[in-house]
Design a protein around this nucleic acid. Structure first.
Lengths: 143, 143
DNA sequence: CTTGTTGTAATAAAGAAGGTTACAACACGC
DNA sequence: GCGTGTTGTAACCTTCTTTATTACAACAAG
């Protein structure tokens, strides 16, 4: 199992929006060229980021811009925007046998623990701001 | 995105092995009946748990047993056994444009952060032992 | 040697991810 | 108003992953 590349792609997009602000119009095809995926994928991802209130997208004229201070955007915000935030982290096998003492209780026994795992992952994602990624990028570009 | 049900299934299997120890022979079809999946799935999962040194499986005669003290088996051990532990947690979009300053650096900027997320998840999984799940289960069965 | 079991291959079905084409709706410059 | 470039979206396809299922050789014990 693996998470899709949507989070990395979304981060790439946001970094581009910041990096090219005022220099280039960040259209879906411009971004597609940097990310190296299909422009439609960019438009879908931008749509998700827009719905989450992270970016503004100019319909018609084209181009996207940040809707919030990069210090107020965390990896968790981006993750929730592009990976379906409503589904469980772990799929559960369906209909364990209720006639079995284990089958009757696994769900109750595991659910809380798996929720803790999800929470740990979310906390870790929340600890990273877009601003810190920008700082890292600028630093790497200078050297 | 979602993790497969392999971890929940593996936990269910291990709980059954403990719960029915000395009472029933935990064959793949016996376990399949409790978990409510195909016996072949059980055999494959048991094979992964065996390869990870967590259980013994009796070829021919049938049945499985724990290979370690339940207090020494963590959710991380089980997770690593049944989910491929060698792949990255997040897939990365391939070949970002090296002619772009962002494309050139995203990988270096994100890799460390995503590794931190994985570590947080692993720490959280490591914090749960099979023994604690057994205790939970016994408690729930009593009431 | 019969019986029940494991290990494993082969195949199928269903779902998710990403690619691609197509086109209506939109906003701006002229 | 009209052409141009862009976004939003639908539709379809391919590939990969997950799970189910059938089949059968290898194995252990009575």
């Amino acid at each position: 199992m693996q998470f899709s590349s949507r989070l990395p792609i979304a981060v790439h997009i946001l970094l581009c929006i910041v990096e090219f602000d005022g220099k280039y119009k960040t259209t879906s095809s411009f971004l597609a060229d940097s990310v190296n995926v299909n422009p439609v994928i960019i438009r879908k991802t931008l749509g998700q980021l827009r719905d989450a209130g992270l970016v503004h997208v100019e319909a018609g004229v084209g181009g996207a811009s940040l809707a919030k201070d990069p210090a107020d955007i965390t990896l968790l915000d981006i993750f929730d925007a592009v990976e379906c935030a409503d589904t469980e982290l772990f799929r559960f096998h369906e209909n364990p046998n209720p006639a079995c003492p284990v089958g009757r209780t696994v769900h109750a026994v595991l659910d809380g623990r798996l929720a803790d795992v999800r929470r740990a992952m979310e906390d870790s994602l929340r600890a990273v701001t877009l601003q810190s990624l920008i700082d890292d990028m600028e630093h790497k570009l200078e050297t």
